[in-house]
C-alpha cells in the first residue's frame, strides 16, 4: 500500500547564525492512512522543524519527501499552499484562533483561503459538521474569549479537519491545557485516524504519546523508535 507520506534522508540546517546548526540529519519517516505517530524529544531537538518540513512550511535541504507517489521535496510555494489546504490539517499549541471571529468563522477560515470556492450554504454545512465531529457544534457562534482552553483547541482541531485532510499535524496541542482537558483533546485527535486520516503528534507528554500507534524519538537530528513504544 502506498504510504500517505514518506521522508527519506531528510536534512535541515538552520543558517543565518554564526554557526549553522543541523537540526535534521537524515530523517526517515513513513506514515500510512490511519497511522498515528507520536514524536517525542527534548526542547530544541527539532520536532517543530520536522513538522514544518512535513507540513510544507519549510523545505528540506537534502533527502526526499513523497506525498503518495508525488515528489514534493522542492515543490514551489504556490503548489505547496494548495497542498497545505487540500492534504494537511494543522493544530498548534497556542490554538491561533482569531478573537474577533466566532468559532464557526474561525473554522471557516480554512475554507475561505482562495483554494476553490464553496457557497455560503455548503461552507456552513461543512463547518458545523467539523464542529460536531469534535463535539462543540453548540458553540459555533461563540467567540474564542468566551471559550475554555479545551474548547478553543477543539475549535482549532475542527478548523484542521474541515477540509478533510489526509494528514493531521499537531504541534504540542496539549501544551497549554490541563491534564484532563489535554486527554480529551488527544482523544479527539486520535479519533481522526478512525476515518483514515494520518496523525503526526509532536508532544512532550509520554502519556499522550502512549496513546498513539507509534512513538518515535527525535534525537541528534535522527528519528528512532522510542523505548516506551505502546500500541493502543
Amino acid at each position: 500500500m502506498t504510504p500517505l507520506i514518506r521522508l527519506a534522508g531528510v536534512t535541515k540546517t538552520l543558517k543565518g547564525q554564526e554557526q549553522p546548526r543541523t537540526i535534521l540529519a537524515g530523517v526517515d519517516l513513513t506514515v500510512h492512512s490511519g497511522d498515528s505517530v507520536a514524536i517525542l524529544g527534548r526542547s530544541g531537538s527539532g520536532k517543530s522543524t520536522l513538522l514544518s518540513v512535513i507540513g510544507l512550511f519549510d523545505r528540506p535541504d537534502e533527502g526526499q519527501y513523497l506525498l503518495g507517489e508525488q515528489d514534493i521535496t522542492r515543490i514551489p510555494e504556490r503548489k505547496a499552499a494548495a497542498l497545505r489546504s487540500a492534504e494537511f490539517g494543522f493544530v498548534f499549541q497556542r490554538f491561533f484562533l482569531l478573537k474577533h471571529l466566532t468559532a464557526a468563522q474561525n473554522v471557516a477560515m480554512a475554507l475561505v483561503n482562495g483554494q476553490g470556492w464553496l457557497s455560503r450554504r455548503k461552507r456552513k454545512a461543512k463547518v458545523l459538521a467539523a464542529l460536531d465531529r469534535v463535539g462543540i457544534a453548540h458553540l459555533a457562534k461563540h467567540k474564542p474569549p468566551r471559550l475554555s482552553g479545551g474548547e478553543q483547541q477543539r475549535v482549532a482541531i475542527a478548523r484542521a479537519l474541515v477540509r478533510e485532510p489526509r494528514i493531521l499535524l499537531a504541534d504540542e496541542p496539549t501544551g497549554a491545557l490541563d491534564t484532563e482537558t489535554g486527554n480529551l483533546v488527544v482523544e479527539a485527535l486520535r479519533a481522526t485516524t478512525d476515518h483514515g486520516c494520518g496523525l503526526v503528534l509532536v508532544t512532550h507528554d509520554r502519556d499522550h504519546a502512549a496513546k498513539m500507534g507509534r512513538v518515535l524519538r527525535l534525537s541528534d537530528g535522527l528519528l528512532n523508535p522510542a523505548a516506551e513504544r505502546v500500541v493502543v
Binding site: E77, A82, S85, A86, F96, L98, M109, A110, N113, G114
Partner: peptide, 19 residues
C-alpha cells in the same frame, strides 16, 4: 503577523494575503 502566518498555514496563497 500570527493571523497572516496562520492563513498561510491553512493554504492561503501569498498573493491572496496581499489581496
Amino acid at each position: 503577523i500570527e493571523e497572516f502566518a496562520l492563513r498561510r498555514a491553512v493554504g492561503t496563497p501569498r498573493l491572496l494575503l496581499a489581496g
